[in-house]
Protein backbone atom coordinates (compact mmCIF):
# COMPACT_ATOMS: atom_id res chain seq x y z
CA UNK A 1 0.00 0.00 0.00
CA UNK A 2 1.39 3.38 -0.94
CA UNK A 3 -0.88 5.65 1.00
CA UNK A 4 1.12 8.35 2.79
CA UNK A 5 -1.23 8.49 5.78
CA UNK A 6 -1.09 4.72 6.08
CA UNK A 7 2.70 4.87 6.12
CA UNK A 8 2.48 7.24 9.09
CA UNK A 9 0.53 4.74 11.19
CA UNK A 10 2.47 2.91 13.94
CA UNK A 11 4.08 -0.30 12.75
CA UNK A 12 1.78 -2.58 14.77
CA UNK A 13 -1.30 -0.88 13.34
CA UNK A 14 0.00 -1.18 9.81
CA UNK A 15 0.51 -4.88 10.38
CA UNK A 16 -2.95 -5.18 11.88
CA UNK A 17 -4.54 -3.63 8.79
CA UNK A 18 -2.48 -5.77 6.44
CA UNK A 19 -3.67 -8.89 8.24
CA UNK A 20 -7.24 -7.60 7.98
CA UNK A 21 -6.77 -7.05 4.24
CA UNK A 22 -5.36 -10.56 3.87
CA UNK A 23 -8.40 -12.01 5.64
CA UNK A 24 -10.67 -9.98 3.39
CA UNK A 25 -8.73 -11.29 0.38
CA UNK A 26 -9.36 -14.85 1.55
CA UNK A 27 -13.06 -14.12 2.13
CA UNK A 28 -12.91 -14.83 5.88
CA UNK A 29 -16.08 -13.04 6.93
CA UNK A 30 -15.96 -13.89 10.64
CA UNK A 31 -12.32 -12.85 10.94
CA UNK A 32 -12.91 -9.56 9.14
CA UNK A 33 -15.89 -8.74 11.37
CA UNK A 34 -13.83 -9.62 14.44
CA UNK A 35 -10.97 -7.43 13.22
CA UNK A 36 -13.41 -4.55 12.74
CA UNK A 37 -14.47 -4.84 16.38
CA UNK A 38 -10.88 -5.14 17.49
CA UNK A 39 -9.89 -2.05 15.53
CA UNK A 40 -12.67 -0.04 17.15
CA UNK A 41 -12.04 -1.27 20.70
CA UNK A 42 -8.45 -2.33 21.13
CA UNK A 43 -6.90 0.03 18.58
CA UNK A 44 -9.28 2.97 19.08
CA UNK A 45 -9.60 3.40 15.32
CA UNK A 46 -12.33 5.54 13.85
CA UNK A 47 -14.85 3.93 11.47
CA UNK A 48 -13.58 5.93 8.51
CA UNK A 49 -10.01 4.72 9.02
CA UNK A 50 -11.16 1.10 9.31
CA UNK A 51 -13.24 1.46 6.17
CA UNK A 52 -10.32 2.95 4.26
CA UNK A 53 -7.33 0.97 5.51
CA UNK A 54 -8.99 -2.34 6.27
CA UNK A 55 -11.80 -2.71 3.77
CA UNK A 56 -11.45 -0.38 0.79
CA UNK A 57 -7.70 -0.94 0.53
CA UNK A 58 -8.26 -4.70 0.82
CA UNK A 59 -10.93 -4.71 -1.87
CA UNK A 60 -8.61 -2.72 -4.11
CA UNK A 61 -6.14 -5.61 -4.05
CA UNK A 62 -8.98 -8.05 -4.71
CA UNK A 63 -10.08 -5.88 -7.65
CA UNK A 64 -6.57 -5.75 -9.09
CA UNK A 65 -6.09 -9.51 -8.86
CA UNK A 66 -9.53 -10.05 -10.39
CA UNK A 67 -8.58 -7.78 -13.27
CA UNK A 68 -5.30 -9.66 -13.70
CA UNK A 69 -6.99 -13.06 -13.79
CA UNK A 70 -5.54 -14.25 -10.47
CA UNK A 71 -8.88 -14.22 -8.66
CA UNK A 72 -12.24 -15.17 -10.17
CA UNK A 73 -15.87 -14.50 -9.38
CA UNK A 74 -16.19 -16.89 -6.40
CA UNK A 75 -13.27 -15.35 -4.50
CA UNK A 76 -14.48 -11.83 -5.24
CA UNK A 77 -17.98 -12.67 -4.07
CA UNK A 78 -16.67 -14.12 -0.81
CA UNK A 79 -14.46 -11.09 -0.22
CA UNK A 80 -17.41 -8.80 -0.92
CA UNK A 81 -19.52 -10.76 1.54
CA UNK A 82 -16.83 -10.39 4.20
CA UNK A 83 -16.75 -6.67 3.51
CA UNK A 84 -20.51 -6.49 3.76
CA UNK A 85 -20.40 -8.18 7.16
CA UNK A 86 -17.90 -5.61 8.42
CA UNK A 87 -19.94 -2.79 6.94
CA UNK A 88 -22.91 -3.82 9.06
CA UNK A 89 -20.76 -3.05 12.09
CA UNK A 90 -19.40 0.18 10.67
CA UNK A 91 -22.43 1.68 8.95
CA UNK A 92 -24.24 2.96 12.06
CA UNK A 93 -20.98 4.56 13.17
CA UNK A 94 -20.17 5.99 9.77
CA UNK A 95 -23.40 7.97 9.48
CA UNK A 96 -22.24 9.98 12.50
CA UNK A 97 -18.70 10.35 11.35
CA UNK A 98 -17.99 13.51 9.38
CA UNK A 99 -14.63 12.41 8.05
CA UNK A 100 -15.98 9.93 5.55
CA UNK A 101 -15.89 11.08 2.00
CA UNK A 102 -18.34 9.06 -0.05
CA UNK A 103 -17.06 8.44 -3.53
CA UNK A 104 -20.50 9.00 -4.97
CA UNK A 105 -23.85 7.32 -5.48
CA UNK A 106 -24.43 4.76 -8.22
CA UNK A 107 -27.71 3.42 -9.54
CA UNK A 108 -27.22 0.09 -11.33
CA UNK A 109 -29.47 -2.41 -13.03
CA UNK A 110 -29.83 -4.86 -15.90
CA UNK A 111 -31.94 -3.31 -18.65
CA UNK A 112 -35.49 -4.14 -19.60
CA UNK A 113 -36.00 -7.55 -21.15
CA UNK A 114 -32.76 -8.89 -19.72
CA UNK A 115 -32.68 -11.11 -16.67
CA UNK A 116 -28.94 -11.60 -16.14
CA UNK A 117 -28.02 -10.85 -12.57
CA UNK A 118 -24.58 -12.13 -11.57
CA UNK A 119 -22.18 -9.78 -13.35
CA UNK A 120 -24.17 -6.70 -12.47
CA UNK A 121 -24.26 -7.70 -8.80
CA UNK A 122 -20.52 -8.20 -8.85
CA UNK A 123 -20.07 -4.68 -10.20
CA UNK A 124 -22.35 -3.40 -7.44
CA UNK A 125 -20.38 -5.16 -4.74
CA UNK A 126 -17.04 -3.97 -6.08
CA UNK A 127 -18.32 -0.39 -6.23
CA UNK A 128 -19.51 -0.68 -2.64
CA UNK A 129 -16.11 -2.05 -1.78
CA UNK A 130 -14.56 1.05 -3.32
CA UNK A 131 -16.68 3.32 -1.13
CA UNK A 132 -19.62 4.09 -3.42
CA UNK A 133 -23.21 4.10 -2.27
CA UNK A 134 -24.90 1.57 -4.59
CA UNK A 135 -28.60 1.38 -5.40
CA UNK A 136 -29.11 -1.96 -7.15
CA UNK A 137 -32.41 -1.99 -9.05
CA UNK A 138 -32.07 -5.63 -10.06
CA UNK A 139 -32.97 -7.08 -13.46
CA UNK A 140 -35.44 -6.11 -16.18
CA UNK A 141 -35.29 -2.40 -15.30
CA UNK A 142 -37.07 0.09 -17.56
CA UNK A 143 -36.16 3.73 -18.19
CA UNK A 144 -38.80 5.09 -15.80
CA UNK A 145 -37.41 3.07 -12.95
CA UNK A 146 -33.82 4.13 -13.67
CA UNK A 147 -34.85 7.78 -13.84
CA UNK A 148 -36.93 7.66 -10.67
CA UNK A 149 -34.03 6.09 -8.75
CA UNK A 150 -31.48 8.59 -10.10
CA UNK A 151 -33.73 11.43 -8.91
CA UNK A 152 -34.63 9.87 -5.57
CA UNK A 153 -31.03 9.19 -4.60
CA UNK A 154 -29.54 12.21 -6.33
CA UNK A 155 -27.13 9.74 -7.93
CA UNK A 156 -23.93 10.62 -9.76
CA UNK A 157 -23.59 7.49 -11.83
CA UNK A 158 -25.88 5.19 -13.79
CA UNK A 159 -24.55 1.69 -14.49
CA UNK A 160 -26.42 -0.43 -17.03
CA UNK A 161 -25.84 -4.07 -17.85
CA UNK A 162 -27.07 -6.19 -20.77
CA UNK A 163 -26.04 -9.74 -21.64
CA UNK A 164 -28.08 -10.10 -24.81
CA UNK A 165 -27.58 -8.55 -28.22
CA UNK A 166 -31.32 -7.96 -28.30
CA UNK A 167 -31.53 -6.08 -25.02
CA UNK A 168 -28.44 -3.90 -25.30
CA UNK A 169 -30.11 -1.39 -27.66
CA UNK A 170 -32.41 -0.50 -24.77
CA UNK A 171 -29.43 1.26 -23.18
CA UNK A 172 -29.74 3.87 -25.92
CA UNK A 173 -33.41 4.37 -25.05
CA UNK A 174 -32.50 4.99 -21.42
CA UNK A 175 -29.80 7.50 -22.36
CA UNK A 176 -32.23 9.33 -24.64
CA UNK A 177 -34.75 9.47 -21.81
CA UNK A 178 -32.08 10.86 -19.49
CA UNK A 179 -31.56 13.70 -21.95
CA UNK A 180 -35.29 14.36 -22.23
CA UNK A 181 -35.59 14.47 -18.45
CA UNK A 182 -32.67 16.86 -18.13
CA UNK A 183 -30.55 14.32 -16.27
CA UNK A 184 -27.93 13.46 -18.87
CA UNK A 185 -25.50 16.26 -18.03
CA UNK A 186 -25.31 15.43 -14.32
CA UNK A 187 -25.23 11.65 -14.74
CA UNK A 188 -22.16 9.62 -15.60
CA UNK A 189 -23.32 6.65 -17.66
CA UNK A 190 -21.35 3.38 -17.54
CA UNK A 191 -22.34 0.32 -19.57
CA UNK A 192 -21.19 -3.28 -19.63
CA UNK A 193 -22.10 -6.89 -20.39
CA UNK A 194 -20.76 -9.66 -22.62
CA UNK A 195 -21.90 -8.38 -26.05
CA UNK A 196 -21.35 -4.69 -25.24
CA UNK A 197 -18.33 -3.10 -26.89
CA UNK A 198 -16.54 0.21 -26.74
CA UNK A 199 -17.87 1.17 -30.15
CA UNK A 200 -21.40 0.41 -29.03
CA UNK A 201 -20.97 2.48 -25.87
CA UNK A 202 -19.72 5.39 -27.93
CA UNK A 203 -22.50 5.02 -30.46
CA UNK A 204 -25.27 5.19 -27.87
CA UNK A 205 -23.64 8.12 -26.06
CA UNK A 206 -22.53 6.37 -22.86
CA UNK A 207 -19.56 7.82 -21.01
CA UNK A 208 -17.61 4.62 -20.66
CA UNK A 209 -17.67 0.95 -21.59
CA UNK A 210 -16.51 -1.27 -18.72
CA UNK A 211 -14.99 -4.61 -19.61
CA UNK A 212 -15.37 -6.05 -16.11
CA UNK A 213 -16.15 -5.11 -12.52
CA UNK A 214 -12.62 -3.92 -11.79
CA UNK A 215 -12.67 -1.64 -14.81
CA UNK A 216 -16.08 -0.34 -13.77
CA UNK A 217 -14.69 0.71 -10.39
CA UNK A 218 -11.71 2.43 -12.01
CA UNK A 219 -13.95 4.20 -14.50
CA UNK A 220 -16.35 5.32 -11.78
CA UNK A 221 -13.54 6.71 -9.67
CA UNK A 222 -11.81 8.44 -12.58
CA UNK A 223 -14.93 10.03 -13.99
CA UNK A 224 -16.02 11.27 -10.56
CA UNK A 225 -12.54 12.73 -10.03
CA UNK A 226 -12.62 14.47 -13.40
CA UNK A 227 -15.99 15.92 -12.54
CA UNK A 228 -14.68 17.24 -9.22
CA UNK A 229 -11.72 18.67 -11.05
CA UNK A 230 -14.07 20.58 -13.30
CA UNK A 231 -16.21 21.87 -10.46
CA UNK A 232 -13.48 23.07 -8.10
CA UNK A 233 -9.96 24.07 -9.07
CA UNK A 234 -8.72 22.95 -5.66
CA UNK A 235 -10.02 19.41 -6.02
CA UNK A 236 -8.63 19.46 -9.52
CA UNK A 237 -5.13 20.02 -8.28
CA UNK A 238 -5.51 17.11 -5.91
CA UNK A 239 -6.60 14.83 -8.72
CA UNK A 240 -3.78 15.94 -10.97
CA UNK A 241 -1.31 15.42 -8.16
CA UNK A 242 -2.65 11.90 -7.57
CA UNK A 243 -2.19 11.10 -11.22
CA UNK A 244 1.40 12.25 -11.06
CA UNK A 245 1.94 10.06 -7.98
CA UNK A 246 0.70 7.07 -9.87
Amino acid sequence: MSDKLFDLLPQNLQEFYITMQDDLYDGLKDEVIAATGEALDAHAQGPAAILQYGLVAGMEIVGEDFRDGILFVPEVLLAAKAMKGAMEVLRPLLTDAKDVERQGTVVIGTVKGDIHDIGKNLVGMMLEGAGFEVINLGINVDADKFIAALREHNADILGMSALLTTTMPYMRTVIQRLAEEGLRERTIVLVGGAPVTEAFAEDIGADRYCDDAAVAVEAAKTLIAIRKERSTPEAGREVRQKRVDK
Binding site: D114, N140, L164
Partner: peptide, 13 residues
Protein backbone atom coordinates in the same frame (compact mmCIF):
# COMPACT_ATOMS: atom_id res chain seq x y z
CA UNK B 1 -31.13 -20.52 -31.90
CA UNK B 2 -31.90 -17.31 -30.03
CA UNK B 3 -30.83 -14.88 -32.75
CA UNK B 4 -32.74 -16.93 -35.35
CA UNK B 5 -35.88 -16.69 -33.22
CA UNK B 6 -35.43 -12.96 -32.89
CA UNK B 7 -35.17 -12.59 -36.64
CA UNK B 8 -38.46 -14.45 -36.78
CA UNK B 9 -40.02 -11.94 -34.42
CA UNK B 10 -39.29 -13.03 -30.85
CA UNK B 11 -39.38 -9.75 -28.96
CA UNK B 12 -36.83 -8.56 -26.44
CA UNK B 13 -37.15 -10.44 -23.23
Amino acid sequence: MGTMLQQAGLTDG
